[in-house]
Design a protein around this nucleic acid. Structure first.
Lengths: 142, 142
DNA sequence: TTTCCTGCAAAAGGTTTGCATGAGC
DNA sequence: GCTCATGCAAACCTTTTGCAGGAAA
């Protein structure tokens, strides 16, 4: 636990926004002017691997496109990145629920489930037994 | 509606996966060997602007981090990209619902609401009147 | 004809990596 | 002392853009 990592974690804990790596870098630099952007990236990665902060992403880092324009939900495999449509109705009352507790004009939502796909499930069994827990860092993205 | 755009749209409609731009490029190239990646990017953008395909993203294109590791939901402004935490309980029975209709081992979900933040709401009023509809392409991302 | 689109190549981000030095334990 | 982390710079990958020629309407 180096000085840099401590300051980065501290910065993240002291802020309710959802900064990009570069924004974190700018904030950290006010306390450690010589920190490098690479260090910030490396530590954000490490901290999120250890569950001390969260990385926000949908369908992995790279942009993905969907030919189905109807509102629908997805499941994504946390191990291999495979994403599938879910055959379920959208839940319309969620939007009105949020309308009451936030000052945004809510116009819709996205919902993505995470889990293990059948293939990764069985591979997991072979390698580490059925009890293995989800590790986002081992994700291979299809 | 050029030949290229037609093939790109057709490719997207013929596939249930959620390809990246590069994967679309590879598929389109089988029918139009001389298509360029830039054309694919441009058309995916245009097609999603016109609501003919969907762009999947959470919190915009750039990666974002969150110091709050407890499960919680977000609202994101579709105009400026500002993202806020929502003061609401997570809905645990969603996961078991999906467990029944998919062959994934579901371990959790992410839910993000989209809408206009108060600031963009009032700016919208000034510029285009209250009726203006959401245009993802005008997003400035904070 | 006028407009918009394409392909190519270069540029522009954002993120990751190699390497030698330096801090943590 | 050994390991792991840092800073710097270069590499990498994805996405965007400028431009001249070409297709669409």
């Amino acid at each position: 636990m180096t000085r840099q990592r401590k300051v980065i974690l501290d910065t993240m804990k002291g802020v309710t926004s959802h900064p990009t790596a570069d924004q974190v870098y700018q904030m950290v630099r006010r306390r450690l002017p010589h920190v490098s952007l690479a260090t910030v990236y490396r530590n954000l990665e490490i901290l999120s691997e250890h569950g001390m902060i969260q990385k926000l992403e949908l369908a992995g880092a790279q942009r993905r496109f969907d030919g189905n324009v109807e509102s629908h939900y997805h499941v994504r495999c946390t191990r291999c990145g495979r994403t599938e449509d879910l055959p379920m109705e959208i839940i319309p009352h969620l939007d009105s629920m949020v309308q009451g507790i936030s000052d945004f004009d809510v116009a819709g939502h996205r919902l993505e489930f995470m889990g293990l796909c059948p293939k990764c499930k069985s591979e997991n069994k072979d390698i580490a037994g059925p009890g293995k827990t989800y590790s986002p860092s081992t994700q291979t993205n299809e």
